[in-house]
Amino acid sequence: MSALVFELKDTPDQRLDLSPLVPERLDGLSHKDIKAIEISTTRETLTVGDAFKVKGKNAQDIHFYGTDERCDKIGARLAGGEIFVDGDVGSQVGARMTDGKIEVRGSAGILAGASMTGGHVAIRRDAGDQAAGPAFGETMGMKGGLLTIGGDAGELLGERMRRGLVVVGGKAGDYAGGRMIAGTLVLRGGAGRYAGYGLRRGSLIFTEKPKDILPTFSDSGVMEFDYLLLLEKWLRGAGMRIKLGGRARRLMGDMAVLGKGEMLILA
């Protein structure tokens, strides 16, 4: 069965709330029913049929084409199935998702993977601020699953993250890993200022020495970490070309708060 395809007709003049376009909501609906779903965010009513050409049938395999940064909440609360996006996406892609996979070929806006608890969000290019952070109304950031960002990430990456794994190919912005409670960030292109600010527990893994390290992180020296080898194996199994090795300099922090987190800088 062919994928269910949504092709954006034109640049929308308002932000679109695409959170209803997930498999569990669309399964079994006719094209007519799907086209009648409201996606407007202003008082001017806009339906799926107004904004998108709809083709195909398989609601477990949804494809978006021609999307831009006004297409918000793609795959929000996704509980299974796959979503493929050929274009940029707006805010909250994959926010609060529990399972399934979202692949974005372009860049994402703020709050990508916010408060997600499972599944995989893969963003080929950049992600905006607060990726894997707390979604609006939530008290914690990402609580499980995998978020991969091929390009750069904005500020407050993984803020208040509770569990899960984030891998950034480019540079992360300021306050990466801020107030993390647990979970792991792998930062392959360094980070801006104040990485790990307010870190309680959890791990920030730098493949290169970051430019700035907070003075409230305490150097524990270079050590062997078997779990880095396991993580490397797991990441390679997930299709990522990455080398972590088993040795890293460990800094404990943030001593301004609980101080049971760690920064690992590969040695």
Partner: peptide, 20 residues
Amino acid sequence: ATLPELVALLAANVRETRFD
């Protein structure tokens, strides 16, 4: 030190934890 660093340093000092 910047203001965020000073806040962190003072917080660590209040807790009497180690910092460099």
